[in-house]
Each structure stands twice: as C-alpha cells, then as structure tokens.
Amino acid sequence: MSTAQRRLDIEEVGDVTVARFIDKKILDETNIQIIGNQMFGLVDEDGRKRIVLDFTNVEYLSSAALGKLITMDKKVKAAKGKLRLCCIRPEIYEVFEITRLNKIFDIKKTQEEALEGF
C-alpha cells in the first residue's frame, strides 16, 4: 500500500486529522478500493480517532464510494472516535440526501465548522 499513489492529503490540526480527497472523481472500483484502504488505514494502522474528511476537490462520488464512507464511519465509531465530513458541493450533498446518508454522517459546511468543538 505504501507504494500506491497517495489519494488523501493529510493535515494535523491540533489532535484532529483532516484528510482531504485528492481525486475529483471517486468512481471506478479500483480507485475506490485504493482510496478506501488509505482512509481505513487512518484508523486501523495509524490509530487516529478524530477525523475530518474534506470533500473540497470531489466532483463525483458513486454509491460504491458511499459504501466505503459508511464502513469508515463504523470503524471510527468502533474505535470510539469521531468522524465529520465537510466542504461537500451541492450536487454531492444531494447524493447524501437522496440516500438519506445525511442522517448518518455528521456533515459540516466548512473545515472551520468541522473543527469547531471537536
């Protein structure tokens, strides 16, 4: 995995990890698999517990990617951590609304809001 191209930009803000997706399109099985593994690694390998996923760059997101986000949410919850999503553009937010996943995820408009009171 370490040799695979990095798909998340990681930034530490205090004790919170901000992971920003690099890809514009989170589509295609292989792609989603790699992104998913790098995301899961934040919890499983690095033991991070307070994570903000930043969607600034994301223009497309398929249902398979939603599946990875659900698994990620479960992993963070199981580790007694906290996961927030932020900077989701309106079309993508609609995807969360249609699938009612906006009820599951803690979604904030901006990164500042996501970091507030974490």
């Binding site: 249902s63 659900i70 949410d73 479960k74 249609i98 699938t99 009612r100 599951i104």
Partner: peptide
C-alpha cells in the same frame, strides 16, 4: 430499500436508487 432505517448502515444497494433519482 437502502433508505429504510435497518439498511441505512449497509454499505451497498444505493446505485439503482441514485439512477432513479
């Protein structure tokens, strides 16, 4: 139905729903 309460946390089954939307 992926939006049913009991299925919300299942990681699959949302594709057809998105197409229809």
């Amino acid at each position: 139905d992926p939006t049913a309460e009991e299925n919300l946390e299942r990681p699959c089954g949302r594709g057809i729903m998105l197409m229809r939307a």
